[in-house]
Amino acid sequence: MTEFLVLAALALLAIVAAGLVRVHLGPSRADRIISAQLIGTGGVAIALLLAAASADTAIIDVALVLALLAAFAAVGFIKSASRDGAGDPEETEEEA
């Protein structure tokens, strides 16, 4: 079972790496940040597979932190994408 889980984690790593081609191609910054989000989701899945492969549940905590950090990275991008506080688009729309 351990072999299968490690192989699955490796396959997933390859799939995520292929997605990085979009980071290179772009064309927009938003394309690049969502490709980076793929590392977030894929990385969480890889961590879960390794947690089962090594029977070490502490790695699930790593997955949890990775999920949160990926979300914060995207929020950071959104905030930087607009200076006028439109990082919270719904709110500005309602005020307008």
């Binding site: 938003a30 979300a71 688009p89």
Partner: peptide
Amino acid sequence: SVAQLVARAA
């Protein structure tokens, strides 16, 4: 939720 915000920012 991030997807919606990025979609809007883009």
